[in-house]
Amino acid sequence: MGTAKFIFAGAAAIGMLASSAFADDLTGMVTRIDRLNNTISIQQTQTGTVGGGAGGAGALEVYKAKDAAMLDAVHAGDRVNYTATDADGTSTLTKLQKQ
């Protein structure tokens, strides 16, 4: 019984560490801002080694701003650092900072 608890506790700890890895800052370029709906489109910058992939830009994502004031500091074409969460199928920006 004690071994099973130990294994489940270890699995839970690994799961928590893995989920925090997805909270890392991402980088990208703002392509569109919709202030009426509090949404922003960001073209994610690809990461990895040079020549390690097909090249080109990363995925274009649309995010809901956690706070409408976040969108006031950026404009289309700006390069940004951001953090987002995905809850109930909605991607929400939790941090947005102009580079």
Rank of each mutant, 00 (worst) to 15 (best):
G56M: 09
L36C: 00
T47C: 03
M16I: 14
N38D: 06
A23D: 05
G51P: 07
L17I: 10
L36T: 06
A57I: 09
I40L: 02
D34T: 02
I42A: 01
T27I: 03
T49I: 15
A59Q: 15
G28P: 01
D34H: 02
T45R: 08
K64M: 09
V62A: 01
G51E: 07
A54K: 11
A57D: 07
K64T: 11
S19M: 11
S41G: 05
T47P: 00
A23R: 11
N38R: 06
M16H: 10
G48K: 04
Q46C: 05
A23V: 03
N38T: 04
L36W: 01
Q44K: 05
Q44P: 00
I33W: 03
N37M: 03
S41I: 01
Q43T: 07
V30D: 01
A21N: 08
E61Y: 15
G58Y: 08
F22N: 08
S20R: 14
A69E: 15
Y63V: 12
A59H: 09
M16G: 08
T39G: 00
G56T: 10
G48S: 12
A18H: 12
G52P: 13
E61C: 13
G56L: 09
A23K: 10
D25W: 07
F22V: 10
T47Q: 14
V30T: 03
D24E: 06
G15N: 14
G48L: 10
K66E: 14
A69D: 14
L26N: 05
M29I: 07
M16V: 14
V62G: 01
S41Y: 00
Y63D: 02
G28Q: 05
N37E: 05
G53K: 15
G28M: 04
M16A: 12
A18V: 15
T47F: 08
G56Y: 07
T45E: 09
M16T: 13
I42S: 02
D67H: 13
T31H: 00
T47S: 13
L17Q: 08
T31L: 04
D34M: 02
G52I: 06
G15H: 12
M16Y: 12
S41A: 07
Q43P: 01
G28V: 04
T31R: 11
I40Q: 03
T39F: 02
R32N: 05
T27Q: 07
D25T: 09
A23L: 10
I33C: 05
R32E: 07
A57G: 07
F22A: 09
R32P: 00
V30A: 01
V62C: 03
G53Q: 13
A21T: 08
I40P: 02
L60R: 12
G51D: 11
D34F: 00
S41E: 09
M16S: 10
S19W: 04
Y63Q: 09
I42N: 02
L17P: 03
A65C: 12
G52V: 04
S20N: 12
G28F: 02
G15S: 13
I40E: 01
Q46E: 11
